[in-house]
Nucleic acid binder design. Structure first.
Lengths: 266, 266
DNA sequence: TAGTGGTCTAGACCACTTG
DNA sequence: AAGTGGTCTAGACCACTAC
């Protein structure tokens, strides 16, 4: 039985079938539009993998052949493939080729269902502003924002809901240039939408994810038992100028929220 | 006061000083060794930023000038810079230039201290194997590993300690080809070391981070109060062939452990 | 207008894997 | 020996920003 199982595996490993990419990949490449060629290629390959046209484990065309068939140069093809490697969809081995990672789709849907159902995707998200006031930066806020201790900052505390169910308590601190952000705007739009409308382009977010026991207020606001667990996230966000834009401390209901991360080696 | 503060900020924004890269950057480039040129360049720029030679907010040389001064082509320089952008160290704007992100170092040290002190970096890590047995895959394990329900798998449960202090309870499931991994190896080496010694090159890890109340066993093993919070991580790891290598369910002491993630937009 | 990064090309040579 | 991805070059044109 054990041996049989092993042979099965070996067989599976061997059948790294070379797989012809679907014809749809090679049509309607737009050379004049604003979408980069490498992005068009990457999107098509990704879509072909997502809809099953290219099965998991399949070996796709090599870079040069693909470039010739598409009428594109090798660096362009290479960039498209690299983007998918960085997404964890493809793996490359020198001397071997490029393969589709196994089990990309099914498992994700399995594990994500609860969160997806309750999150912004399906149920209407809404926000209640619990606090909105100018204050002065304590040491943690000051070092996080890169401003002197005692500097004026805007503090906001919001309750995020999805479909009427409370999801998270969000504390955020913003440097003085954003002190005029209106409470009404935050009720209607997300913080990042408000910032975006002011011309702020957020590019980098450094996050620390942890857990702790809920405070009394958090448990009340989130509708969970006193002293039960919350999932926490601390974040410092930077714009495209390299400036700190925001420092946040968030507490999520752990039964309704989790974080997904895909790490790619080397 | 408010107005004064604003002026201060405007001034800071303006002083995006062009900053000459230190001379050390331009010495001893090794063209014959195994380390790619772009990596040598990226490492030097990163080091110059880390040690303060290039201050936060500084604008560094443009790609072409840097290439000429280093005797390297533009694509090589570009790749080096892009790697640092992807790390969240630099930001680029078309028509403007490339700048060092502000507040990269200090804040990280502030927030990381507790975890760093107790983690593998400073205190000796050790592992105690709590369980080690062949079993059959239930539905979650089966879908995660991509094997049929009921397939033989290796289940291991370990207690990870740092300096004698329990950090985490680690449950891992491995497909049948790894069923012969020895308990003794796991006591002495990490799981990934054991796999590496068998020629497995792990390339991708898809992780989900959450929180929940500790089980009774976890609270005992981790030395925390019953019903207090644990930080959880579920992971599926893939090798360079795109095969699933391992499925893990981990529970961490949240006062001693957290996850850091840096997200880079677009 | 000048300077910057973003994209794309058409080659070249190399290291590694398989047969 | 043949095929693959990994690296590197020397250009080119474009879009965007600042002055």
């Amino acid at each position: 039985m054990n041996k049989l199982e092993k042979n099965k595996n070996v067989k599976e490993i061997k059948l790294e079938a070379e797989y012809p990419l679907p014809r749809s990949l090679f049509l309607n490449i737009d050379r004049s539009g604003p979408i980069p060629l490498y992005h068009q290629v990457a999107s098509r390959i990704e879509a072909a993998i997502a809809d099953g046209s290219v099965p998991a484990g399949a070996r796709i065309d090599n870079e040069i052949a693909l470039g010739e068939r598409l009428g594109l140069s090798r660096p362009t093809i290479r960039r498209a493939i690299q983007d998918l490697v960085d997404k964890g969809i493809l793996v490359r081995r020198r001397g071997i080729g490029t393969q589709v990672v196994r089990g990309g789709v099914t498992r994700k849907l399995e594990l994500t269902s609860l969160y997806e159902d309750l999150s912004s995707a399906k149920r209407a998200p809404s926000t209640k502003v619990l606090a909105h006031a100018q204050t002065t930066a304590d040491e943690l806020v000051a070092t996080s924002l890169g401003v002197p201790v005692g500097s004026p900052v805007l503090h906001i505390r919001r309750l995020r809901l999805a479909g009427g169910v409370p999801l998270a308590v969000l504390d955020n601190y913003l440097p003085s240039e954003f002190i005029d952000i209106k409470r009404a705007d935050l009720e209607q739009f997300g913080l990042y939408q408000v910032l975006s409308s002011r011309g702020v382009d957020i590019r980098i977010a450094k996050q620390r994810i942890g857990a702790r026991t809920a405070t009394l207020e958090e448990s009340k606001k989130l509708g969970i038992d006193r002293k039960s667990a919350v999932l926490t996230m601390e974040r410092v966000a930077f714009d495209n100028k390299g400036h700190v834009v925001e420092f946040g401390q968030h507490a999520y209901r752990p039964d309704l929220y989790s974080f997904e991360v895909t790490l790619v080696g080397k």
